[in-house]
């Protein structure tokens, strides 16, 4: 697509059609929420939500017809978000794999930093 082209116009029926599909998906979401499918609950809910978001982005926001660079930017932002979430889940989902984590309740009133007895040492994490 050239830089100064006129805006891309879709026929009205495409908008109405996509709108109808979005409504149908909303109804499916409501129905699916009534039935307990175990671990599939979240999978179905997220799959429907993702499909709907993509339909909006591709057609209502014209990503499908626009400069492919814009699609690349959109896709890369999704990619980096995936990296952030999935690598973080490598941690949060697999804690205690090797060494068992002893489950101790954390005291609400635990003293984290006591001015009177401290010698001012902070031993938090690494920063290289």
């Amino acid at each position: 697509m050239s830089e100064h082209s006129t805006p891309h116009v879709l026929p009205l029926r495409v908008y109405l059609g996509i709108g109808a599909i979005l409504l149908i998906f909303t109804i499916i979401t409501v129905i699916a929420a009534q039935i307990d499918l175990g671990f599939l609950n979240i999978v179905i809910a997220l799959a429907i939500a993702t499909t709907k978001a993509l339909l909006v982005a591709f057609f209502f926001m014209h990503l499908y017809y626009d400069n492919k660079l814009l699609f690349l930017i959109f896709a890369s932002s999704i990619f980096f978000l995936t990296v952030l979430i999935s690598l973080t889940m490598f941690d949060t989902l697999r804690r205690g794999d090797i060494y068992e984590i002893r489950d101790i309740n954390i005291e609400q009133d635990a003293i984290i930093y006591d001015e009177s007895s401290s010698v001012g040492a902070d031993t938090s994490g690494t920063n290289h």
Binding site: F90, D91, R95
Partner: peptide
């Protein structure tokens, strides 16, 4: 590495 994240991560 010493934060308590999972060994796998």
């Amino acid at each position: 590495f010493v934060s308590g994240q999972s060994e796998f991560a």
